[in-house]
């Protein structure tokens, strides 16, 4: 596993190393084109027996369970599980709100989100699954279908190195428009700051879940947004709408933090109900710990 693929973005090799050996498994049955270790909703030729059904015309003779025929004198065929590869869709918010200048020494939200996306893509490709990428600004900036292979990973990294996108404010609406492009029975990672109106995002994610996708919401926030450390009289400006607001931070901090907490609570509550993984990330977070622990927790939940 390389730290950098082609001439795109670069990821700390220690992060990739920490994720090595951690398998990404969907909590739902997947649908894939190629054989792999993921359970699918279709019947196939694996060794994992599922059930019998009556023989129908066209079934292969070799699939008839002759022992059952001997007991029941009727023709039944054995059905086995099908294992296929998984399609993972990475939906990355590249709007202006993700490009807010970070505090000194920290990565911006978009840089952090790109690193997370790249790490997940590397993880997916390295376990022979297919990864696709969708960059969303005020419109769908880039749509790369899920594929396998290192060449595809290089392409993804290239786009993640300089993710295109301007404006914003309608991430939820935009990903809702993706529709059939995000295929059913796969995994979807929604990587955004989720600071827009939540209803469209909820709706879009509900649709994805309804299409049997295992959805994970990675909410990336800036430390300044979470802690609101400002002290002097400040003129705040929204990066997407350009709206301005002059305020004395000490006067508005309490109310601000309360509203932010409510927002986060709402998001968390929705995700819990919709069986969506919710991972809040701040730009001062240690990704090696955060991602590894999250994916391990998922695995344990699956097998526990």
């Amino acid at each position: 596993m390389s730290a950098a693929v082609s001439s795109g973005m670069k990821i700390d090799p220690r992060l990739l190393q920490s994720l090595k050996g951690v398998h990404l498994r969907s909590r739902m049955l997947v649908r894939g084109m190629y054989n792999n270790r993921h359970r699918t909703s279709d019947f196939g030729s694996s060794t994992e027996f599922i059930d019998h059904r009556e023989y129908q015309k066209g079934d292969a003779i070799r699939s008839i369970d002759w022992r059952v025929f001997a007991r029941t004198d009727r023709h039944y065929v054995k059905r086995h599980e099908m294992e296929a590869n998984m399609r993972v869709h990475l939906l990355l918010d590249t709007s202006d709100s993700m490009r807010v200048p970070p505090p000194d020494g920290l990565p911006s939200k978009l840089e952090l989100a790109a690193a997370i996306t790249g790490a997940i893509a590397t993880m997916v490709i390295s376990q022979q699954d297919a990864a696709g990428l969708c960059l969303v600004g005020d419109k769908i900036e880039e749509r790369i279908p899920a594929r396998q292979g290192m060449n595809h990973l290089a392409q993804l990294f290239q786009h993640l190195g300089a993710p295109r996108g301007t404006g914003g404010g309608a991430f939820g609406t935009q990903i809702a428009h993706l529709g059939g492009h995000v295929q059913a029975r796969g995994m979807v990672f929604v990587i955004t700051d989720a600071l827009d109106e939540l209803e469209p995002l909820y709706k879009a994610m509900r649709n994805m879940v309804a299409r049997h996708n295992d959805v994970t919401l990675l909410q990336v926030l800036d430390l300044a947004e979470v802690e609101f450390p400002f002290t002097r009289m400040t003129e705040f400006r929204h990066p997407e709408t350009g709206a301005r607001l002059a305020a004395n931070p000490s006067d508005v901090r309490d109310r601000y933090l309360q509203r932010l907490r409510e927002h986060q609570s709402s998001l968390e509550s929705f995700c819990r109900k919709a069986r969506i993984d919710y991972v809040p990330v701040q730009n001062n977070a240690d990704l090696m710990v955060l991602l590894r622990s999250h994916f391990l927790r998922r695995l344990m939940r699956r097998f526990g």
Binding site: H238, D251, V252
Partner: peptide
Amino acid sequence: MKPQVLATLRFLDPQDVTNA
């Protein structure tokens, strides 16, 4: 006033700001 880009501007209450 120091200009500051803030993506979470919607959480600032204009009613509080009037007394800035």
